[in-house]
Design a protein around this nucleic acid. Structure first.
Lengths: 227, 227
DNA sequence: CGGCAGTTTGATTAATTTCAAGCAAGGTGG
DNA sequence: CCACCTTGCTTGAAATTAATCAAACTGCCG
């Protein structure tokens, strides 16, 4: 079960490094930090469920959180995977109604929790908070439109190639990367069944991708771009 | 070709009824309206292309605009379909870089165009503009997450059923609705080929859906919910 | 009466899910 | 120290779903 815990100095200073807080200065930043609570989760803890009253939004300090929706037969679809520095459920700040999806920790995870009401009140005083929120939400919105486009025009190997290229951004020659989470989570993030991800990786072997557990080597980024 | 046109009184008062303007009051609202230009488009006019510098964002006064992305082979995927009262590309206000997708009028369409730089400057003066933007963008972000979830867990007939139910919101008994755009656009919006939409409609005949051109009759909303 | 855009229908193909089974690494308890 | 189990991943085969290709149909307009 997830447990509330007071924010220590360590957590506070970690929180201050998160993009959406670090874009604030002075009192606005201090008050946001002071208004936050810590939440500690273990793997598979549910943080909130769809339709529950949306009184809080969150920022991930460490670990990963999966946002997903259920259909009537109990099948799950991942909507987003949030890692360190990501915030989630911030839309509830200005959109009424309960949460629109479920949130689950995938691992030991440390979160900051903000009370919607308090932050709204703070935003009355410090306009910079609204600006920070627009920035954060815009970024998420663009990401989610990318996701829709990718789902609709890419095959499984293309999605994986795309993910790998973004993940090792910049490397021109051979690159190596280590997945920060199990492959099954990556599959969900890309909208694939784990089996489909596995098969996509074997297809990509032909384009210079070698997989050893979570360690992935990319010998020819150019080939990957042409998948 | 789309053409810039001065905002007449008719256009200005129409603009004032758009949700994201009407949430503003007094000067903030006036200045936003004064800063807008009108754009008139004919069917198939391109409003902007992916990677072009994103100097403007838009609000639809009448008509429909299709946001879509191309892949390398020239296949298109729709990301969003914007109708009257919708704004699009507002994310560019706080996210740098060019447009992330193409925008095309699907019909004779009247738009308001806002210059990003001016609106940013206005927002310095009137914090309410930031609040309005958070509201608008949050709404779009939630919609796009719905879209991801629906794409990932619903079959074609389910997506169509879902669309119909949302479109005739509230009606308990039999309902009728008229599509405001051709079926091919609806197909794109739902992430389907036109043929798949057509087949989905014939499947739904078994759940009390009758189609006459753009006119759709739903004899049993309950059955539709169970598709 | 053509002609055309939009839509439907049929046949085929492609991609992915689903189900089932096997494999490998790591951890546990005897 | 080893047999056993668990978890995560891979592989194969079958089934589903929708895309694609091709052709026919419909209503509307000149």
């Amino acid at each position: 079960m997830s447990s509330l815990l007071p924010m220590g100095e360590r957590e506070k200073s970690l929180l201050r490094t998160m993009p959406f807080i670090s874009s604030l200065i002075g009192e606005a930043s201090d008050q946001m930090v002071e208004s936050a609570s810590g939440v500690h989760c273990e793997a598979r803890d549910i943080i909130f469920r769809q339709d529950e009253p949306s009184d809080f939004f969150y920022c991930v300090l460490s670990g990963y959180v999966r946002l997903y929706r259920l259909n009537r037969d109990g099948r799950e679809a991942d909507i987003r995977l949030c890692g360190p520095e990501d915030t989630f459920a911030e839309c509830v700040l200005y959109a009424e109604g309960g949460y629109r999806y479920n949130a689950q920790a995938t691992d030991t995870t440390l979160l900051c929790r903000f009370e919607t009401r308090s932050v709204r009140r703070l935003a009355e005083r410090y306009g910079a908070i609204d600006k920070a929120m627009v920035g954060v939400i815009s970024g998420h919105f663009l990401e989610s439109m990318d996701c829709i486009a990718n789902d609709r025009l890419q095959t499984a190997p293309q999605r994986v190639a795309n993910y790998l290229l973004n993940a090792c951004e910049g490397s021109v020659e051979t690159a190596q990367l280590r997945l920060p989470f199990p492959k099954s989570l990556l599959a969900g993030k890309l909208g694939l069944a784990p089996e489909a991800l596995s098969r996509a990786f074997s297809t990509l072997r032909g384009s210079g991708v070698t997989v050893h557990g979570r360690l992935i080597e990319i010998s020819d980024p150019e080939a990957l771009r042409n998948v």
